[in-house]
Computed example of a mutant assay.
Amino acid sequence: MSKEINNTILYNPDEQLSMLYNRKVTCPVCEAVFNAKSIKKNSYRILKKDSDFFIRYSRISPYFYDVWVCNECGYASIKTDFENLSDYAADKIREKITPKWHKKNYPEVYDINIAIQRYKLSLLNYYTIGARESKKAMNYLKLAWMYRLKEDDKNELQFLNQALENLSTAYYNEPSPIYGMNKFTTMYLIGELKRRLDKSEDSLIWFSQIITSTMSPQKIKDLARTQKDLIKSEPSEKEPELENKSNKKDGGFFSKFH
Rank of each mutant, 00 (worst) to 15 (best):
P217S: 12
K40M: 13
I39F: 03
A170C: 09
P62W: 02
Y65W: 10
K183E: 15
M19W: 09
K256F: 01
D250R: 10
S122Q: 00
K40S: 09
V67T: 10
C73N: 12
N155G: 04
T80E: 04
V29I: 13
D198L: 06
V109C: 04
R196C: 01
Q117W: 03
T26R: 13
N125T: 01
K79V: 13
L149D: 07
M1N: 00
M181E: 07
N6F: 00
Y171Q: 08
K249R: 14
D14C: 11
G251L: 06
D198E: 12
L242I: 15
Y119V: 12
A32D: 12
E133H: 07
E241R: 15
I205A: 12
L143D: 15
I129K: 11
M181Y: 06
E4D: 03
I129V: 13
I114A: 10
I9Y: 12
G251D: 15
R23T: 04
K150G: 00
D52T: 03
S38G: 04
N125H: 04
E133L: 05
M146N: 09
F34P: 00
L121N: 06
A90T: 02
K40D: 13
I78Q: 01
S122H: 04
Q218E: 15
Q209W: 00
D52G: 03
P240K: 14
N125Q: 06
D50N: 08
E239Y: 02
Q117H: 07
K40A: 08
I97Q: 11
T186L: 06
C70V: 11
P13E: 11
E174K: 00
Y65D: 02
F54N: 13
L167M: 12
D202M: 03
K135V: 11
Y127S: 05
F82A: 02
E165Q: 04
F184V: 03
Q158S: 02
E4H: 02
N247L: 15
I97W: 00
S58L: 00
E174C: 09
K219S: 15
M187R: 05
Y127K: 05
I60W: 07
M187P: 08
Y75S: 00
Y110D: 09
Y21T: 13
P175H: 12
L123C: 06
E174S: 08
G191S: 08
K219P: 05
A76L: 08
T98L: 08
K228P: 00
Y88V: 14
P240S: 10
K142L: 01
E133A: 08
L20T: 06
A170L: 10
S208Y: 14
N12G: 01
K228F: 15
S233V: 10
L47E: 04
S61L: 02
R132M: 06
P235A: 05
Y119W: 11
P13L: 13
D250Q: 10
S38Q: 12
D153K: 14
I205N: 08
